[in-house]
């Protein structure tokens, strides 16, 4: 298991380095990087001095090393808007975004796991039809539309939940449902189809033949094996969930990183965007590493090889 983890860590280090390069390269899309990093009304000598401090006159590899050095110390520059350190602004919002993301994944599991199991155990029953409809419709309704409809129903018409902002758990309910619905569709499908495959396999027949009850067979034997493609899909879906969270934060004016970055894009606040991109990618890499461990626990073959 230790080796397995070391290998995964190394692979992830390469990914993080690549992400850092992309974040670094972003400024070169602008015609004048120094200008892009400063407020629009910055005086010319400020632009000139930043150009020298950040070494835009140096060769690119040297510049990248400089960028990496500063990034390791947590220095992504200061926001062109508020003049605060960009990384601090992003990290301050991280807990709010993480709790929304986690609540969203929770909702998604709450929908996908029971629905996926029931649909696979009774193919073509009404549960299966419901599961498939949820999957098809869930994939077609974008988060911002579902969010609007939920706001209209729960917050405006029935007034049982807050419209937007943040506060207690009540503020998390609608946004988490919207985030969760987005990934529930795919997860339900994956769980259903992998369970269907597994339930037809020989070792399941053996388990039944030796007299195990249906509950033990499905929950004990089949589900554990179906968990592997399920976790793979979840890992693959993380980036999409993060994208969903950003849009949902805007719909509900939920004060997370997503709302911050959308405002930053409108203001062309590049340092904040760079810091955010890096933090978002790092979050995904970290959660992925966590899922890798879950993987190793689920399937001994993976950690042995």
């Amino acid at each position: 298991m230790a080796w397995f983890l070391v290998r995964r860590l190394l692979a992830n280090a390469v990914v993080v380095l690549g992400v850092a390069f992309i974040v670094f390269a972003l400024v070169f899309l602008a015609s004048d990087p120094a200008r892009a990093l400063l407020p629009l009304d910055a005086p010319l000598d400020a632009v000139e001095s930043l150009r020298r401090t950040l070494g835009f006159d140096q060769p690119i590899p040297i510049q990248f090393l400089g960028f990496l050095g500063r990034a390791i110390q947590g220095d992504f520059g200061t926001s062109t808007r508020t003049l605060e350190p960009a990384l601090g602004m992003v990290l301050e919002r991280l807990p709010a975004t993480l709790s929304l993301g986690a609540a969203g994944v929770g909702v998604s599991l709450l929908i996908a796991v029971p629905l996926g199991i029931l649909a696979a155990v009774r193919p073509d029953s009404w549960v299966d039809v419901v599961a498939r409809s949820v999957a098809v419709v869930g994939q077609a309704v974008p988060g911002f539309v579902l969010g609007q409809v939920l706001i209209l129903l729960f917050a405006v018409t029935w007034r049982i939940l807050p419209v937007s902002g943040s506060g207690g758990p009540a503020y998390l309910v609608l946004p988490a449902i919207v985030v969760g619905m987005g990934s529930a569709a795919g997860l339900t499908r994956i769980l259903r189809s992998s369970l269907l495959d597994i339930l037809g396999s020989d070792y399941i027949r053996t388990a039944r033949a030796k007299g195990l009850g249906p509950r033990r067979v499905v929950l004990g034997h089949a589900l554990r094996n179906a968990a592997i493609p399920f976790v793979t899909f979840l890992a693959f879906d993380l980036a999409a969930i993060m994208s969903g969270v950003i849009i949902v934060e805007v719909v509900f004016s939920y004060p997370g990183m997503g709302l911050l970055v959308v405002q930053a894009v409108t203001n062309r606040d590049l340092p904040v965007i760079q810091a955010f991109t890096f933090v978002a990618a790092l979050t995904i890499v970290t959660v992925n590493l966590g899922l890798d461990i879950v993987y190793g626990l689920l399937d001994p073959r993976i950690r042995l090889d």
């Binding site: 990914v15 980036a239 999409a240 994208s243 894009v265 990618a281 995904i284």
Partner: peptide, 23 residues
């Protein structure tokens, strides 16, 4: 394959936002 891994780590919306912010 490595390039694909790197892109996989950055949420697509984030990348799109970043590029749009600059250009």
């Amino acid at each position: 394959g490595r390039l694909a891994d790197i892109q996989q780590a950055i949420p697509f919306l984030v990348l799109a936002l970043a590029v749009i912010a600059v250009v």
